[in-house]
Amino acid sequence: MFLINCPFCGEREQSEFKAGGEAHIIRPKQPSELSDDQWAEYLFMRKNIKGVQFERWNHIHGCRKWFNIVRDTSNDEIKAVYKMGEKPPVG
């Protein structure tokens, strides 16, 4: 169980958080103009990387804020935590 440094509350147990899947997938502004394939790409396609991955997390049993983390899925090392709308601090 890892510790996550919520950008609003500080370091807390993983059990206070909910994972929200891959980060930086932006909801299309004009969905009706997309083809079925383009919409399916947004809707269903997610990466599942062994290694460094960008993820959304929600401090659901805390401040309820969503934020992003950069996590190495091979050893669960969290390389960075940053707020929604911010650019990832590491690549």
């Binding site: 909910k18 909801r27 929600n58 309820r64 969503w66 929604m84 709308g85």
Partner: peptide, 13 residues
């Protein structure tokens, strides 16, 4: 609630 917060915070801030 969690889903609404998600849209509000991440898609429509």
């Amino acid at each position: 609630l969690s889903k609404l917060e998600d849209y509000l915070q991440t898609e429509w801030p």
